[in-house]
Simulated assay, not measured.
Amino acid sequence: MLDKFYEVNDFTAFNKQVKHRLEKSMGDEYDILLHTVTKNNGGRSEGIIIRKKDGYFAHNLYLEGLYKKYIKGMPMEDAVKELEKAYYEAFSNKAENTIDLNSYEQIKDNIFYRIVNYERNKEILSEIPYLPFLDLAVTFHCLVQNKSENLSSIHITYRHLIMWGINVKTVTEQAMENTPRIFPAKINTLEEVIGEIAFETAFPGFQPMYVITNAIGINGAGCLLYKGVIKQVAEIAGGDFYILPSSIHEIIAIKDSGFINKEELASMVKEVNTSQVAEEDYLSDSVYYYCIEEKRIIKIQ
């Protein structure tokens, strides 16, 4: 009874038990490895990697969701079967979904970028190539699966660059070319996104606000760097505009009417980040500004 209580209420013990049972059920043909994944803004997620010893295919499965099912009553054997099923399904689809990461020619069209907060990602930025941008960082990734039900990618590290025989300039150029194609930009008014009544209630007296993201709404803040997007927003807004980092998924543009209080904007950004944005989705507390005449984005708050 005490063993059961400890097992149910201890995530680390659960992970070890899952690993042990997978090793037993799948046999010596497979390597089973527990590992910790560093996520955006320093978050951590526990996963398990299953890899057949005589092949290069490996599949990572996160364990937090499965543990929640377990403590709600899912039997341990069912949890293990769920992991096995997920692995075999991924393995059966590998010919369609898996690319050879050893070949730059095979992966170069799948390279894309994201923008993240610099300060909160210092640890992982020490291990990967990136470009500084204001108080943000542009990071590079390789898309390994792009389906509506499953979007999978990996960070591009310095080891990848060495293996492919390329430098940061090359990966930057490739990412800048690919990202708008893989994840096309999408611009809507905030009223269109949340509804006119909700907009008037939340932002009484504000100028029109424009939401800039990509077609799938995931990591869409990177559209800020798409060639032509900022110019398009300036044309729609009809002049210079403020940029609010809503999250890593989208940014908001507000035309500079000449009457907007910068301090109020900064306060609003911080309040929204604190009360409504998940830690892993946080981008910045800063307020940015685009000047048509200077053709550049600056950080003002």
Results as ranks from 00 to 15, higher is better:
4 K>I: 05
10 D>R: 03
13 A>R: 15
16 K>Y: 07
16 K>Q: 10
18 V>K: 07
19 K>R: 15
22 L>H: 11
28 D>P: 00
30 Y>W: 03
31 D>Y: 01
38 T>S: 07
38 T>M: 05
39 K>W: 03
39 K>D: 02
41 N>Q: 07
42 G>M: 07
42 G>D: 13
43 G>N: 09
47 G>M: 11
48 I>Y: 12
50 I>D: 07
51 R>E: 11
57 F>E: 06
71 I>N: 10
80 V>G: 09
85 K>G: 10
91 F>P: 00
94 K>P: 03
108 K>L: 01
111 I>V: 09
111 I>H: 13
118 Y>E: 14
121 N>D: 10
127 E>Q: 14
138 V>M: 04
145 Q>S: 13
146 N>Y: 15
146 N>C: 12
148 S>G: 03
150 N>C: 13
151 L>V: 06
157 T>Y: 08
176 M>K: 08
180 P>W: 06
181 R>A: 08
181 R>S: 06
185 A>G: 14
189 T>V: 01
192 E>F: 06
194 I>S: 09
196 E>H: 12
205 G>A: 08
208 P>F: 08
208 P>T: 09
208 P>K: 13
208 P>V: 04
209 M>K: 07
210 Y>F: 07
212 I>G: 14
223 C>T: 14
223 C>N: 06
223 C>S: 11
226 Y>W: 05
227 K>M: 04
228 G>Y: 04
231 K>S: 07
233 V>C: 02
236 I>N: 02
237 A>D: 06
246 S>V: 02
251 I>K: 08
255 K>L: 14
259 F>W: 06
260 I>A: 03
264 E>T: 09
267 S>I: 01
274 T>D: 11
280 E>V: 01
282 Y>Q: 01
283 L>T: 04
295 K>T: 02
295 K>P: 01
296 R>I: 01
